[in-house]
């Protein structure tokens, strides 16, 4: 294990861990603030999937782009999304990423290459493939990465986009977080195969499986896929095997869980697992990790305060932004 970590710098390992803690704690805080009334509407939390979100985004350059999903807070934070603007958006405030109009499902930051979370399962995949096509046409070295879940692999959008990506050897990484449930139905009741990476074969590019709860394994796998993409060798489908610890949405009674499954996956919780690896490696001590963790808490305290302090958008602004020009702000 010590050997395995040796190739990574202290700063890199610390940043991976900090980001994983940030994702975990952001989600827990958002859930708490939703209960407390600061956040309206639905939240689909990614607790348990921190390693796949952080490992995958760590393998990208700042000018690379991602498309995300309804369970996208980890992807956005991994790509550098600012917790305070995210929290403000969740709280429907004017200081949020979408000016308080979109909420959790539609956060985007084009400066950071975040093309957007998406309320439609599979909706982001063709968009990422289109971005990759643009990069190829522009002779750019940029790549696109589409996050999606095991449920999306059964949508037509996945297949149409994967076919194009393979046909035109596009610089795109199709990153499937297989958390074993598409909404409230187990993956094995949604597809006749357990290893979704196999679907790449019919589109003519590699499909690889990775332990989605091992942040370094995810990082290394995506890094290799990114290198292929930048070299003009085309797409890769990465299937990260993971598990979500909470419901499809907050409040989901989760009657569909298989007995014992949660307990067994809890043993593989990616955040404490990586923490333990860092400690075992001897390169981090308890005190150093505590400092990182406290830093995250402080950042989230600020994010919540920032969200709570901001006003709601003005009613009159609600009519703008649909077209390049509004209808003169006409109120019927």
């Amino acid at each position: 294990m010590i050997d395995e970590l040796r190739q990574y710098s202290q700063e890199f390992l610390a940043s991976l861990y900090r980001r994983m803690v940030l994702v975990r704690e952001f989600e827990l805080r958002a859930i708490e603030e939703r209960r407390g009334g600061l956040i309206p509407g639905f939240i689909h939390s990614c607790v348990g999937q921190e390693a796949s979100a952080v490992g995958a985004t760590a393998a990208l350059r700042e000018d690379d782009v991602i498309t995300s999903t309804h369970r996208g807070h980890g992807h956005l934070l991994g790509k550098g999304g600012a917790p305070q603007y995210m929290m403000a958006e969740l709280a429907a405030r004017s200081s949020g990423y979408c000016l308080g109009r979109g909420g959790s499902l539609h956060i985007s930051d084009f400066d950071l290459g975040i093309l957007g979370a998406n309320g439609i399962v599979g909706g982001g995949i063709p968009i990422a493939v289109g971005a990759a096509l643009a990069f190829q046409m522009q002779h750019s070295s940029r790549v696109a990465l589409a996050f999606f879940g095991d449920g999306a692999v059964n949508e037509g959008a996945f297949h149409e986009a994967a076919n194009l990506a393979g046909l035109w050897a596009l610089p795109v990484i199709l990153f499937c977080e297989n958390n074993l449930y598409g909404e409230g139905t187990p993956q094995d009741r949604q597809a006749p195969i357990a290893d979704l990476a196999k679907r790449a074969e019919s589109y003519g590019f590699p499909g690889v499986i990775v332990d989605g709860n091992d942040v370094l394994a995810v990082y290394a796998t995506v890094k290799a896929a990114v290198s292929r993409a930048r070299a003009g060798e085309g797409p890769t489908l990465v299937e990260a095997k993971t598990y979500r610890f909470r419901g499809h949405y907050e409040g989901d009674p989760q009657v569909y869980r298989k007995p014992g499954e949660m307990e067994s996956w809890r043993q593989r919780d990616p955040v404490p697992a990586f923490r333990q690896r860092l400690l075992t490696s001897g390169r981090f001590d308890e005190a150093a990790l505590k400092v990182l963790e406290q830093g995250v808490q402080a950042e989230l305290d600020e994010a919540v305060a920032f969200a709570a302090a901001a006003p709601y958008p003005e009613v009159g602004e609600a009519l703008s932004g649909v077209y390049g020009e509004t209808h003169g702000g006409l109120v019927f």
Binding site: P40, G41, A92, R93, G100, R101, G103, Y312, P313, V315, A318, L319, G321, V322, H327, V331, F332
Partner: peptide, 17 residues
């Protein structure tokens, strides 16, 4: 009396829509 030609929701102002 109708909704507006915008994309609902407006979250904080859904009731205004």
């Amino acid at each position: 009396v109708t909704g507006y030609d915008v994309i609902i929701p407006l979250f904080a102002y859904e009731q205004a829509y």
